[in-house]
Each structure stands twice: as C-alpha cells, then as structure tokens.
Simulated scan of single mutants.
Amino acid sequence: MRTERLGQFAGLGAAVLFGCSAPLISTLTGSGSALSIAGLLYGGATLALLAVRLVRGTRAETPIRREDWPALAALTLLGGVVGPVALVLGLARLPAATSSLLLNLEAVFTLAIAVLLGREHLGRRGLVSALLTSVGAVVLSQGSLSGANALGGALIALATLAWGIDNNLSQRLSLRDPIQIATAKAAGAALPMLLLALLLGHAFPPLPLTLALLGIGALGYGISIWLDLLALRNLGAAREAVLFSTAPFVGALFSVVVLRESLSAPLLLATGLMGAGVALLLREQHSHRHRHESLLHAHRHRHDPRGIGGSGDPHHEHDHALEELEGLPSEHPFWHAHEHRHLELEHGHPHVSDAHHRHRH
C-alpha cells in the first residue's frame, strides 16, 4: 500500500506540473517555430533530469539493458517525435476547444491498450473514476467539435494514440531506473528536433524566452516524466491514465489563478467531476486470492532480513549471493536491485496492476 500511495502522489504531481506548463507554453508559441520550441522544452527536461541524477547520485535501481533499447527507441519516437509533430500540425487545423476535446483521447487509448492488451485490471470504482474524469474533461473543453475537419481530427487522434502506446511501453520499462529512462527519452526527443530546426533554418526565440522555455520544460516535461514513470511503475498504465487526465483541469485552474483568466461555469463543474473521480480512485481497493507464476526479472525492491513475519514484501523473499548483500545492513530492511526469481506463490492482499500482478480475474 505504501508504494501504491507513492504512485498516486507521483501521478498527481506529474499531472500538476504538465498541466501548469500548457498555459505558459501557449503564451510563448509566437516566439519561434513549433519545432524549435518543442526541442527547447525537451532540452530543458534533459538538463533537469541530468541535474536530478547528479544530486541523487546512484541509487539501488536496475539500469537500462540491451534488450530494453528497442522499446525505449519506440516510445521515444512515438511520444517524443510523432506525438508532438502530429499535435502541432493538428492544432493548426482545428479550433482550440475542439483540440482540447480530442486530446482527451489519450486517456481513452491508454486505458484501452492497458486493459485489453496489457492484462491490467480496472475495477468498478476505477471505471467510474475514469468516466467522471473523462466527463469533466469534456465539460472543461465545452464538448464542441465545431470547426473540426477530418485531417485535423485524424492528426490529433494520431498524436493521442502515439502517447497512449508510449504510456504502455513506458509502464513496461518502469522497473528500470526511472531517471535513466526519462533522461534517455527526453534527450532522444530534444536532440533530433533541435538539430532539424537548426538545419532547416527555423526561428528560435530570443534568449530570455529561450531560458523561460528551458525552465518550463525542466518542470513540465522533465520532472513530470520522471514522476509519471513512478506512477506507471506503482499503479499500472490504466490508473496512471485516470490521474494524468486531470492535467487539462490543472492547466485551466492555473490560467485562472496565475494568468488571471475569467472563472467559468464549465471549470467549476469540471472541478467537481474530476475531484470526485480522483477521490474515488484514491479510495479504490482491489483484493482477492491470486497465484503468482514463476518469474525471473530485475528491479528495485525491498528486502527484510526478518522474513515474511516481519514488515517485508512477501513477493521478494529469496536467497541472495554474498556479493549482492555486500555493504548492506544485516538486521534492518533495505532497498536494493538485482536479478531475482519469484517462486510460485498463492495469497490474497490489496494490489494494483503493477509488474507483479498481471493475472486473470
């Protein structure tokens, strides 16, 4: 339950940071080309994540492995290049309200892929929570498709589908070092876009606005991506999608409080709907007897020398080689990372669809 609560706070934190970044970016879109602005945002994200890694030092995490690179390349291409480019092209062809409404397809695609293909489970409360937050997003965007055209709608749908796949691929990689994954993703998106903008002679913002975009990208993209990976690790992609779907509401509220935009009735109604949806998800508990199949993998986990009778995680009671325990406490719980095998286990307890709980219901 402790890791689940951490995932919930991380997911909400990611939504808050990303939601606040959108209104700020909208005030700077005329300062340069779409490609240069997107590249600067991801450049700021890369710098922030490198700084976090430097401050935190090396932690007990499993680094990216050779077999992870295809998935990492795919999510970087989809989430960092295809999604943003399709979004920019779609935004140019659609009114703002229509774009906001269609962008909610990201949560729909993420949920559908996670549940139908990823074997994640979302109970009745989770489904009602997803419905409430989705309706709140529709209300927030005033549910209008006026001015829409087929090409613009298709481009926005392509962007949201790319991000939905990205979210599910990221969840599969979230057992690896989240800072390393986030940094690789941000750098993999920033460098090609910045180089392409330079080669094509695109306009870049003046220095003060460039620094502002780097700062917005540091928080709204860099730290947000890191927190989102923690949410994906501890909750699964379906529940993360519900929490992250509150980002448009956060952006609208930020616009009212900070940018002094007018308070509207749709915003007040969306506040109630999304608040109810998030509260319902936070209170959700899913528990039943289930069987764990034998599994070999590597990730950060908590080991309690006192065994199952102590406060440890029964999923991670396994033998260790002497070198795996070198320098670690012998009497107190500790976190570490190494390749380990899960033996078959049957028990019952509250759980979500994390990497250890993808089973039939």
Rank of each mutant, 00 (worst) to 15 (best):
R2L: 10
R2M: 08
E4H: 13
E4A: 14
R5S: 13
A10Q: 05
A10K: 04
L12I: 15
G13M: 11
A15D: 11
G19H: 08
C20S: 14
S26M: 12
G32T: 11
S33L: 09
S33F: 07
A38Q: 13
G39Q: 02
G39V: 05
L47V: 01
A48R: 00
V52N: 00
R53P: 01
V55E: 00
A60Q: 08
E61L: 02
T62S: 14
P63I: 04
D68M: 04
D68A: 06
W69F: 14
A71Y: 02
V81N: 09
V88Y: 12
V88I: 13
P95F: 09
A96N: 04
A96M: 10
S99Y: 06
S100N: 14
L101E: 09
L103P: 03
E106K: 03
A107N: 06
G118R: 13
L127M: 14
A130K: 05
L131F: 14
V135S: 01
G136L: 05
V139W: 00
Q142S: 11
G143E: 08
S144L: 06
L145S: 07
S146F: 01
G147N: 09
A150W: 11
A150V: 15
G153C: 09
G153P: 04
L158M: 14
T160V: 04
L161D: 05
W163G: 03
G164S: 12
I165R: 07
Q171R: 15
Q171Y: 01
R176T: 07
I179P: 01
I181W: 00
I181F: 00
I181Y: 00
A182L: 08
A184D: 00
A184T: 08
A187K: 02
A187I: 03
H202A: 09
F204P: 02
L209M: 13
L211R: 10
A218W: 00
Y221H: 11
I223C: 14
I223V: 15
D228C: 11
L232I: 05
R233K: 14
R233G: 10
R233I: 12
A237G: 07
A238E: 01
F244V: 14
A247L: 10
P248S: 11
L259I: 11
E261F: 01
L263D: 03
L263C: 05
S264D: 10
A265E: 08
P266K: 06
P266F: 04
A270D: 02
T271E: 01
G275S: 08
A276K: 03
A276L: 10
L280T: 04
L281D: 05
R283C: 04
R283Y: 00
H288W: 12
H288A: 12
H290Y: 09
E293C: 10
H297L: 13
A298L: 05
R300M: 10
R300S: 14
R300E: 13
H303N: 06
G310M: 05
G310A: 14
H315K: 06
H320N: 08
L322E: 12
L325P: 03
L328I: 12
P329R: 13
S330P: 00
F334R: 00
W335E: 13
H336E: 05
H338N: 09
E339V: 13
R341F: 11
L343R: 15
E344D: 09
L345R: 09
G348M: 08
H349P: 01
S353I: 04
D354K: 02
H361V: 15
